[in-house]
Design a protein around this nucleic acid. Structure first.
Length: 636
RNA sequence: GCCGUUGUGGCUCAGGGGUAGAGCAGCUCACUCGUAAUGAGCAGGUCGUCGGUUCGAUUCCGACCAACGGCUCCA
């Protein structure tokens, strides 16, 4: 019998009979491995256990310990769910069902949406089907055969997918009576699915296009074993405790009100203080980097928005008003007044780059269904700047912004993801401008040394952009910082500068934000710190707590002294037990509680207690001021 | 905007065709008590809004509004 030689990851080789599969290889190595094997990787390509090997292949056995395992488990679980749905709801049409970061989903075309009760029935069915130990088999078909097969099965979406793939052959995976178009790989049997849970029902458009039919999506998750699943579900519950909407209410930072309107946050004293601290920080950081602070009006004439292209491209997101029979647009962006400042006089190349910074409050009419706490609102303040520069300065300016973003994010301890978004369908400007702008952003990204993704067609209508995303407590990504390259608005507004040779030239404009919007950033900030803000941004840095009424007078003196020294201090001189006041301060996540009893009054001192429960030695109020100043120094 | 779920006092929630209940918070009183809840009493709701069914609706039905989970869109 002929044999083939297989190379394993440790570069050892193994001889197997011709026609051997990945499973045979695993079995030849050991019974334990054969049992643990979920899939294989042949020459870097993930495959099924049943895949045949060829001589010279480099093969790796995928077990549940492999990083690739989770996706395979989840993908197979999504097929199991589709099978269960088809058995319970034969009229459902299957579409797609991939593994995702947190689990998997499958989209079905249904006349009637699923109910929460249906989820339980489906889950129960899945358990039965998994226990039935159905073999999962891969078959190859010509695309034409596969199309007629799926059409005969009454699955038009699958037929459409195959037609659009434009390939000769496709693979189909089957288990029991269920067959699905799929590239694979999959687990060898449904019995290998050990731990899963269906989580939610949602609507989703076919192929992600809102012009298409809305399908019914079921989200679920799956893990290699029950323990990991439980741990994940527990983590989700824990994460929900950090939800900024919950903490925002508990710490009395902000609220929303039906009477005010959806998407319009109202900032309570502590939330407004938090904003103020961030804004002060921002002003300082911008001034350090040679930005100029500017301020523009809230409404600008509609003609100006027409000239900029916003009227044409962004009108549905704008609010308008009329004054003296003149139409005005409430600004959804800050760029126009910044350009008008630039245009207010003749500019020389010696003036450039000009960096105009504004904490600009904008209004955007976001569609009703997208609002989400502070993360997505209709009125928000951007830490916005527009940099006007020569083409030669563009690269350095983009790099400067990227390093600014990096500096600020590391101060807050945030990890972030970068993406480049290219020209969208609805856009203005010439092809060559778009190419140049995209090229400049790309080169800055490459230079940054960080990884990045590319979102084709996701740019702003006036130019390509780099987006920087932060994650919330449930790992949802929110765009915060962005750098947008714009050749178009300077053209439309005929911005010029006098070059060294005396010629009028066109500057390039960068739109950029660092935090993004103060609102969204605070949302992320709250979830990141679970409300326990670092001392330097805490809206309340310390609270004075008296043991009895005897210390009120001294407490007032301390309070006055700390306030005058710029410490954000509160006082709790209520006639309550110390432990009660400590508890309340603790729940408010106030960094320091300054305990004052008879002992402290005698010595003219306070005993600071940190929110982790540890006491600092008693100190004079002045010493506490110095202590706080020292702690906050690196951010000033 | 689309799909689904939810909507009871400031908060968390129970209840349910005959006109509402708890805990916490609030207020009053007593206690003056050293590091996560002192006790007692009082007050507070036209059960999201508007219609419909009914002898009668907060409870059933419809529309709208809002929130939540997604989709699409986005800082």
């Amino acid at each position: 019998m002929d044999t083939i030689l297989i190379t394993l990851p440790d570069n050892s080789t193994r001889e197997l009979p011709e026609g051997a599969t990945v499973y045979d290889l695993a079995a030849s190595i050991g019974a334990g491995l054969a049992k643990a094997a979920l899939a294989g990787k042949i020459n870097g390509q993930l495959t099924d256990l049943s895949s045949q090997l060829a001589g010279g292949d480099h093969v790796e056995i995928i077990t549940e310990k492999s990083p690739e395992a989770l996706d395979i488990i989840r993908h197979t679980t999504s097929h199991l769910m589709a099978q269960a749905v088809k058995e319970l709801f034969p009229q459902a049409k299957v579409t797609i069902g991939p593994a995702i970061e947190t689990g998997f989903y499958y989209d079905f075309d249904m006349d009637k949406p699923f109910t929460p009760d249906d989820l339980e029935r489906i889950e129960a069915k899945m358990l039965m089907l998994a226990a039935a130990d159905q073999k999962i088999e891969r078959h190859e078909y010509s695309s034409a055969d596969a199309v007629s097969m799926f059409e005969a099965m009454g699955e038009p979406y699958k037929a459409e997918l195959i037609n659009d793939l434009g390939v000769d052959h496709v693979s189909v995976y089957s288990q029991g009576t269920f067959a699905d178009l799929c590239r694979g790989p999959h687990l060898p049997s449904t019995a290998r699915i050990k731990a899963f849970k269906l989580l939610s029902i949602a609507g989703a458009y076919w192929r992600g296009d809102e012009k298409n039919r809305m399908l019914q999506r079921i989200y679920g998750t799956a893990f290699a074993d029950k323990k990991e699943l439980e741990a994940y579900l527990h983590r989700i519950e824990e994460a929900k405790r950090r939800d900024h909407r919950k903490i925002g209410r508990e710490l009395d930072l902000f609220s929303f009100s039906d009477e005010v309107g959806a998407g319009f946050p109202i900032w309570h004293p502590k939330g407004a203080m938090l904003r103020t601290v961030l804004e002060d920080f921002e002003r300082k950081e911008h001034l350090k980097r040679d930005y100029d602070i500017v301020v523009g009006p809230q409404i600008l004439k509609s003609e100006l928005w027409q000239r900029s292209g916003h009227y044409e491209n962004y009108r549905e997101n704008m609010y308008f008003t009329e004054v003296d029979e003149q139409s005005y647009g409430i600004k959804p962006m800050n760029c126009l007044s910044h350009m008008m400042i630039y245009k207010s006089k003749l500019r020389s190349y010696r003036d450039l780059p000009l960096r105009y910074f504004e904490l600009g409050t904008v209004h955007r009419h976001e569609r009703a269904g997208v609002l989400h706490g502070l993360m997505r609102v209709r009125c928000f303040t951007q830490d916005d700047a527009h940099i006007l520069c020569t083409p030669e300065q563009l690269d350095a300016e983009i790099k400067g912004v990227i390093s600014f973003v990096n500096d600020v994010m590391s101060i807050f301890g945030f990890d972030y993801e970068m993406e480049l978004s290219t020209r969208p369908e609805k856009s203005i400007g010439s092809d060559s401008d778009w190419e140049q702008a995209t090229g400049a952003l790309l080169s800055a990204l490459k230079d940054s040394g960080r990884t990045y993704e590319i979102n084709e067609g996701d740019g702003a209508f006036y130019g390509p952009k780099i987006d920087i995303k932060l994650r919330d407590c449930l790992d949802r990504r929110w765009q915060c910082a962005t750098i947008q390259c714009d050749f178009t608005l300077p053209e439309r507004f005929d911005l010029t500068y006098v070059a060294a040779d005396g010629e009028r030239k066109r500057p390039i404009m960068l739109h950029r934000v660092i935090l993004g919007s103060i609102e969204r950033f605070i949302g992320v900030l709250i979830e990141h710190f679970a409300g326990s803000f670092p001392l330097w941004i805490s809206p309340v840095q310390a609270v004075i707590v008296t043991v009895t009424d005897n210390q009120i007078s001294f407490a007032q003196d301390v309070y006055r002294l700390l306030r005058n020294a710029g410490i954000r201090v509160e006082r709790d001189v209520r006639n309550e037990k110390l432990s009660f006041k400590i508890r309340e301060a603790q729940l408010q996540k106030i960094p320091y509680m300054l305990v004052i009893g008879d002992k402290e009054v005698e010595q003219g001192m306070v005993t600071p207690r940190y929110r982790d429960g540890k006491n600092l030695p008693a100190m004079k109020p002045e010493e506490f001021v110095a202590f706080v100043a020292e702690e906050c120094k690196k951010y000033n």
